[in-house]
Amino acid sequence: MVSLREITSSLYGAYMLARRNPDALSYFNISTEGFYHSFAAMLLAVPLFIFENAIDYKSIGTETSLISFLFLLCFALWISWGAYLAVMAILARFMGFSDRYSVFVIVYNWVQLALIIVWFPLSIIASGILPVELASGINLVFIVITYAYLWYIIRVTLNVTGGIAVGFAFIEFLVVILIQATFADWLFTAAS
């Protein structure tokens, strides 16, 4: 079971990576045990993810019930998260970086939790206080920063070129879009 110390250390490591600190990886548990512990981030992200989307639910035009909506969103989150890691596992094997794949997974998992933690208050402020255009702008800026951060994480953990890192970050974008499109009909049902 993952300890509170490992969680906080990993989240601090995510912060240090964002600051491009060369010692940032030392805050993560880079071991086989740490690899499995990092998947706790998927569970820890759920309460914030649910709360944030429950707040946004009223402004979304859907006839899907709140419980079904939140369940489907969480399921889509886990599928896209896991699908990206599965794609990267296949690429790791065929592109010769399988020895660094576990480090990438550990960091990626904890960084995803860190990003959800950072986005949580921003989303509440943006959707509850700011005009729609400004909130959309903040959302777009956050997404761009997130992918720049992912690019950096890929470079650091997998030790690949900037161009390859761009490709791997774009694959994550495609996976997320594909999963969202798959779930869109269930999430955004209209009244008949």
Rank of each mutant, 00 (worst) to 15 (best):
I79S: 05
V105Q: 05
A148W: 12
L178N: 08
S192N: 11
I50H: 01
A41T: 07
Q180P: 04
V132T: 06
S136G: 10
C74Q: 00
I7V: 13
A184W: 13
Y36E: 09
I153H: 03
S68C: 05
A86D: 06
A184D: 11
A191H: 15
L178Y: 10
M88D: 02
S59R: 09
F120W: 11
S59L: 07
S9K: 07
I124M: 12
F39P: 09
Y152H: 13
F35R: 06
V103M: 03
V2I: 13
R19P: 05
V166D: 01
L11V: 06
C74I: 10
N21F: 11
A190V: 08
A190W: 10
A92E: 04
S192W: 09
T182S: 14
M95Y: 13
S10L: 01
E33N: 09
M42Q: 13
V132D: 07
Y15I: 05
A54K: 10
R155H: 01
I129D: 02
Q112N: 15
V105G: 06
P131R: 10
F170L: 11
A76V: 05
V144G: 00
A18C: 11
G34N: 02
L44S: 01
D99S: 13
Y149N: 03
E63G: 13
W78K: 05
D23T: 11
L140M: 12
Q180I: 05
T189M: 15
A18H: 08
L134P: 00
I50R: 06
T146G: 15
E133V: 10
V46M: 12
L91C: 07
L122I: 14
T157P: 05
V46W: 04
S102K: 13
E133D: 14
V111Y: 11
A191D: 14
V156F: 08
L43C: 00
Y15W: 14
F35E: 04
I90M: 11
A83W: 09
M16E: 15
A89F: 15
S80E: 08
I153T: 03
S9N: 14
V111H: 08
Q180G: 02
I55D: 00
V87D: 08
I106T: 15
I129A: 14
A126M: 10
Y27Q: 02
M95E: 14
V2C: 00
L72G: 07
F97V: 05
A114T: 02
I138L: 14
L73A: 00
Y101Q: 12
A135Q: 01
S192E: 07
G61N: 14
A86S: 13
A92R: 01
N53F: 10
T32L: 02
L178A: 15
I143L: 14
P47G: 11
F104N: 05
Y36D: 08
W81Q: 04
S127K: 02
D23C: 03
G13L: 00
R100T: 03
G128D: 09
M88F: 10
A41N: 04
W186D: 01
L178D: 06
L73S: 07
W110P: 03
G137I: 05
Q112Y: 10
S38P: 04
F28T: 08
I177Q: 15
L43T: 02
S192A: 07
L17N: 08
E6F: 06
I154L: 12
N159E: 15
A83T: 13
A184V: 11
S98C: 00
F170A: 08
D99T: 11
P131S: 01
F75M: 09
Q112I: 03
A92Q: 01
I124A: 11
